[in-house]
Simulated scan of single mutants.
Amino acid sequence: MRIITGSARGVRLKSPQGQGTRPTADRTREALFSMLGARVYDARVLDLFAGTGALALEALSRGAENAVLVDRATQPILQENVRRTKMEVRAEIRRGDVYGQMAALAHAGQTFDLIFADPPYAQGDNARVLASAGTLLASDGLFVLEQGADEPVVSAADGLTLLHERRYGAARICFYAQQEGPE
């Protein structure tokens, strides 16, 4: 697994041993960032269930302003990958329960232009992470959820509504934004 383009292009990322982490495939990541386009530039990014940090680090490599990476179990891997990509100044790693960290970020008044979430497949976290993210997403922000292709798609949760979805092999990428109020 490597960074696809930008300032850290070609840098190989370290992955944890075993089956506990399922990094987003290079091809899927490339398609995702192609769809995001210029939206990444200068964005404030939150990467939930970060694992290797590939999504946040790809965003930073492509010009995102900064990123917060949250994972309960992969802090040493995240630190190594941040170091490899030379993103130490722009990346903040938070270790702990994703929902507790989300609450702390919301309490601090932080918002993000791009939120990536890649919870464990088939564990029922999709609706919960969406419901918890509404206050963290900037008004014109985008929430990107990676889930198993066979999992049901959540159409709306806590003010976020599904814009579109794409399937890539065993993964489905869903894009959400703040619901627009009546005019």
Rank of each mutant, 00 (worst) to 15 (best):
Asp71Ile: 09
Arg29Val: 08
Glu88Phe: 05
Ile3Ala: 04
Arg62Phe: 03
Val154Pro: 04
Asn81Ile: 02
Arg2Pro: 10
Val89Ile: 04
Asp26Asn: 08
Asp158Val: 13
Val98Ser: 00
Arg166Trp: 13
Thr111Arg: 14
Gly53Gln: 02
Phe33Trp: 10
Gln101Pro: 00
Leu60Gly: 01
Ala117Val: 13
Leu46His: 08
Val89Glu: 05
Val40Ala: 01
Leu46Asp: 02
Leu13Glu: 05
Gly159Met: 10
Ala73Leu: 15
Leu137Lys: 12
Thr135Tyr: 10
Asp26Gly: 07
Lys14Trp: 09
Gly20Arg: 09
Arg29Ser: 09
Arg22Met: 02
Asp47Arg: 02
Asp47His: 09
Ile93His: 01
Leu55Trp: 12
Thr21Ala: 07
Leu78Asp: 01
Phe49Met: 08
Arg95Lys: 07
Asp125His: 15
Pro120Leu: 11
Ala131Pro: 12
Val45Ile: 14
Ser15Glu: 12
Ile93Cys: 02
Val45Lys: 04
Ala133Gln: 12
Arg95Glu: 08
Gly181Trp: 15
Leu130Cys: 03
Ala59Cys: 10
Asp118Lys: 09
Leu142Ala: 09
Cys174Thr: 08
Asp71Tyr: 06
His164Asp: 15
Ala133His: 13
Ala117Lys: 11
Gly10Cys: 11
Val11Pro: 01
Leu32His: 01
Val144Cys: 13
Gln147Phe: 09
Ala122Glu: 15
